[in-house]
Design a protein around this nucleic acid. Structure first.
Length: 652
DNA sequence: ATAGGGTTAG
C-alpha cells in the first residue's frame, strides 16, 4: 500500500481517531501542536507561513489563477497549505525558452550567470519553473558550490516557487555532502511534516548513504524504516549502504541481519548483486573465508543468476582486495573488462580502476597502480578529482612526490580541476621533503585559484616558513589570508611571536592596528597581554596603550562625524521626498539612499539578497537553518594550531 | 526533458 502524503499523520497512532478528509492544518492544530516542542514549533512556522507576504504574482501565475476561477467549482483548498509544485507541463512557451537558455549556460559551465539569470527571471513576466531552478541547483551541487546552491534555494523559497521532490533531494544531498547530517535531518523532518510532496526512493538512498558516510548509522537505519512506513519497496541499494556502514563499524551481525531482512522482504530471491560485496565482508570479518568465497562464486561465477552491475562488482573487488585475495580481485577485474561492452553492458567504471589501483598501492606496487589508473581511458572512463586525490595521497604517503606531481600534471591535461585537498596533499608532501618553497607555491596556487585553504592548512604553511627563517614570507601569507580566514588567538600569536623574535615589533604593532580596524577580528585580552609582554622585553609596553588610546580617539571622532552625516542625510531625504523625486535617481551615495531603497524598491543591485519586498516576512526558519550551516569544504587535514572542524572561513 | 544505474576516500 502506497501511503500518500496526508497519511503522514498516521504516526499519531495514539490518537487512533480517523480523520479522513479534514484539512491538514486543522488536524495539526488540534492534535499535533502540543505533543512535543518540535510540533509546536512546526505549527508556529505554519502560522508564519500564513502571514508571509507573497512576492508579486507573475503573469503566468495570474493566468493560472484565472483558469482556476473559470474551472468548475472544486472543493475549497486550504489557502495556507504549502504550495504544490508545478507539473512539468508548465514548461512550455516562454518558460521553456528560459529553461533552455539556462540549461545552455549550465552546459557552458557558467553557473554564476545561470544562477543570476534564474534570480532575475523571478520577477520578470517569465518565472523560472522549479525544473529550471533544479537544473541550476544540480549543477551547483555537482561542482560543490554549496554556498551558491543554498543561497539560490533560499531565494526561490522566499519567492514562493514551490520545491518538488528533486529540490528537496538536492538539499539533503547538499547538507550531507557538507557534513551537516543534523541539518539534513531537520530539513527532512520539516519536509515530511509540512510539504505536500512525497519522498521518493531516491530520497532515502541519499539520506541513507549520507547518514552512513557521516557516521550516523543509527539514523540511517531509521530512514530504512521510514521508507517502509511510506509504503516504498525495500531497496537493495539502501540496504547496501547500511551494510557498508555496519562493515565500517565492525558489526558483522548487523550485516547479516540486514541481508536476511532484505532477502525475506524479497521473498527469498535477491537478484540485485549490490549487497554481496558487503556480505562477503561480513564473512571475512568473522574469519569465514570459505563462506565468503562461496558467496563470491555464487554471485560472480558462471552460473550466477545475480545481476552484477559495475558498482556491485566493485564492492566485491574491494572485499577481495582488502581481505588478502587481491589475486582473485585481479582475475575478476579481467573478467569485468572483458564483459564490458558499452552501451549495452557496463561491467567496469571509474570505481573499478580506483579499487584496483588502491589494491596495488596496498601491495606497494605503485608503478602498477599508476598503469591501471591510466588504463581507464581505454574503457571510456575518466578519473575525477577524487580519484586523482586518492592516488596522489597514496603516492605522497609513500614518498613518491615526483609521481604525485606527475598525476597533478595529468589533471591539468585532462581538465580535471584540483581542489583544496589536492593542493594540501602536495603542500604537505613538499614540507615533508623539506621543499618548503615548493610547498608554499602550492599554497599560493590554491589561493590564486579561489580555493579556500582552511586555518589549519595556513597554520602549517606559516609554521614551516618560520621554521626555516622565512618570516617575511610568512607575514606576506598572513596579510593575504587574514582577509580570507577567521583567525584565532593562536594564529595571531604565532605571527606576532615570529615577528617579535626577529625584532620587528613595529610590524607587530601594525598587526594590532589592523586588527583594531577590522571589525571581524577580536583583539582579545589574552592577546593584549601577549603583545605587552613582547613589548616589555624591549621596554616598549607603553606603545600598545598609546596605540589603543589613539584608536579609541579616532573611533570616537568617526562616530561623531557619522551622526552628523546621518542627520544631514535625513534633511536631504526629506527634501527629496518633498520634491517627489526618489533620491535614488540622483545617484546619491549618502545614507538616505540605502534607507529608502531598502524600503521600497526591488533593488537590482541586491543579487545576493532575498527577494522579499518588505524586507521582513520571509520564512525565518529556513533562512536560519541555511545560515546556520557553515559550509566548510576544506576541512581536509588535521589541525595543528587550531581545530580544523571549526568554521574558519569568513561568511560568504 | 528529472531520482537515479549505485560506486572507491580524506
Amino acid at each position: 500500500m502506497a501511503l500518500s502524503k496526508p497519511t503522514f499523520l498516521t504516526h499519531l497512532k495514539t490518537l487512533a481517531k480517523p480523520h479522513h478528509r479534514s484539512p491538514p492544518s486543522f488536524i495539526t492544530l488540534r492534535c499535533l501542536s502540543f505533543n512535543t516542542p518540535e510540533e509546536a514549533a512546526a505549527e508556529r512556522r505554519r502560522r508564519k507561513r500564513r502571514l508571509r507576504i507573497e512576492p508579486p504574482l507573475s503573469s503566468a501565475q495570474r493566468s493560472q489563477q484565472q483558469a482556476q476561477q473559470m474551472s468548475p467549482p472544486k472543493p475549497i483548498q486550504n489557502p495556507n497549505a504549502p504550495k504544490v509544485p508545478e507539473p512539468v507541463t508548465v514548461l512550455t512557451g516562454n518558460r521553456l525558452n528560459l529553461h533552455n537558455k539556462i540549461l545552455k549556460l549550465i552546459r557552458e559551465n557558467d553557473l554564476d550567470e545561470a544562477a543570476l539569470y534564474t534570480r532575475h527571471s523571478v520577477y520578470s513576466n517569465c518565472r523560472p519553473a522549479i525544473y529550471t531552478v533544479n537544473a541550476v541547483l544540480n549543477a551547483q551541487l555537482r561542482q560543490s558550490k554549496y554556498a551558491d546552491l543554498l543561497s539560490l534555494h533560499r531565494f526561490i523559497t522566499l519567492a514562493g516557487i514551490a520545491p518538488n521532490v528533486i529540490t528537496h533531494n538536492l538539499i539533503f544531498q547538499t547538507y550531507l555532502d557538507c557534513k551537516k547530517p543534523d541539518t539534513a535531518l531537520e530539513h527532512y523532518k520539516q519536509f515530511t511534516n509540512e510539504s505536500p510532496v512525497n519522498p521518493s526512493p531516491t530520497t532515502y538512498r541519499i539520506l541513507a548513504k549520507g547518514l552512513v558516510d557521516n557516521g550516523k548509522l543509527e539514523k540511517a537505519l531509521e530512514m530504512k524504516e521510514e521508507m517502509a512506513e511510506k509504503g516504498l519497496a525495500p531497496d537493495p541499494v539502501v540496504y547496501s549502504y547500511l551494510m557498508l556502514g555496519c562493515a565500517r563499524s565492525g558489526d558483522s551481525d548487523g550485516i547479516f541481519k540486514l541481508f536476511e531482512e532484505l532477502k525475506e522482504k524479497k521473498d527469498g530471491v535477491l537478484e540485485d548483486g549490490v549487497v554481496y560485496g558487503s556480505l562477503m565482508k561480513g564473512y571475512f570479518m568473522r574469519g569465514m573465508d570459505k563462506e565468503a568465497m562461496e558467496c563470491y562464486e555464487e554471485t560472480c561465477g558462471d552460473n550466477s543468476k545475480v545481476k552484477m552491475s559495475a558498482v556491485a562488482y566493485n564492492y566485491v573487488l574491494d572485499a577481495l582486495s582488502k581481505n588478502g585475495k587481491f589475486d582473485e580481485a585481479l582475475r575478476l577485474f579481467d573478467r569485468m573488462k572483458n564483459e564490458h561492452s558499452p552501451p549495452r553492458r557496463f561491467a567496469v567504471n571509474l570505481g573499478s580502476f580506483n579499487v584496483i589501483a588502491d589494491g596495488y598501492c596496498a601491495e606497494g606496487k605503485f608503478k602498477e597502480a599508476m598503469e591501471v589508473f591510466r588504463l581507464m581511458g581505454d574503457y571510456r572512463c575518466s578519473p575525477d578529482t577524487l580519484s586523482f586525490n586518492n592516488l596522489i595521497d597514496q603516492f605522497c604517503q609513500n614518498g613518491l612526490l615526483a609521481e604525485a606531481e606527475e598525476l597533478y600534471g595529468d589533471m591539468g591535461d585532462k581538465g580535471v580541476s584540483p581542489d583544496e585537498y589536492t593542493y594540501v596533499l602536495l603542500m604537505d608532501a613538499c614540507f615533508k621533503m623539506k621543499r618548503i618553497d615548493d610547498g608554499a607555491s602550492y599554497f599560493r596556487k590554491m589561493v590564486e585559484l579561489g580555493l579556500r585553504p582552511n586555518l589549519a592548512v595556513y597554520n602549517r604553511l606559516v609554521d614551516e616558513l618560520v621554521k626555516v627563517g622565512k618570516v617575511e614570507e610568512a607575514k606576506s601569507f598572513y596579510d593575504t589570508m587574514v582577509k580570507k580566514l577567521k583567525m584565532n588567538d593562536a594564529s595571531y600569536k604565532f605571527m606576532m611571536k615570529a615577528l617579535s623574535d626577529v625584532g620587528k615589533l613595529d610590524e607587530v604593532l601594525k598587526m594590532v592596528d589592523e586588527m583594531l580596524d577590522d571589525e571581524s577580528a577580536d583583539f582579545s585580552e589574552e592577546l593584549q597581554e601577549f603583545v605587552k609582554d613582547e613589548l616589555r622585553k624591549v621596554g616598549r609596553e607603553d606603545d600598545l596603550t598609546k596605540l589603543m588610546e589613539e584608536k579609541e580617539r579616532l573611533k570616537a571622532e568617526a562616530k561623531a562625524r557619522e551622526i552628523e552625516a546621518a542627520e544631514a542625510a535625513k534633511r536631504s531625504a526629506k527634501a527629496a521626498v518633498s520634491s517627489l523625486l526618489p533620491s535614488k535617481l540622483f545617484g546619491n551615495k549618502d545614507e538616505s539612499q540605502s534607507t529608502m531603497a531598502s524600503e521600497s524598491t526591488i533593488d537590482s543591485s541586491s543579487g545576493g539578497e532575498a527577494p522579499v519586498q518588505d524586507g521582513s516576512q520571509g520564512p525565518i526558519e529556513e533562512a536560519t537553518v541555511i545560515e546556520s550551516v557553515a559550509v566548510d569544504t576544506n576541512s581536509t587535514s588535521e589541525a595543528t594550531v587550531a581545530d580544523s572542524n571549526a568554521v574558519d572561513t569568513k561568511p560568504f
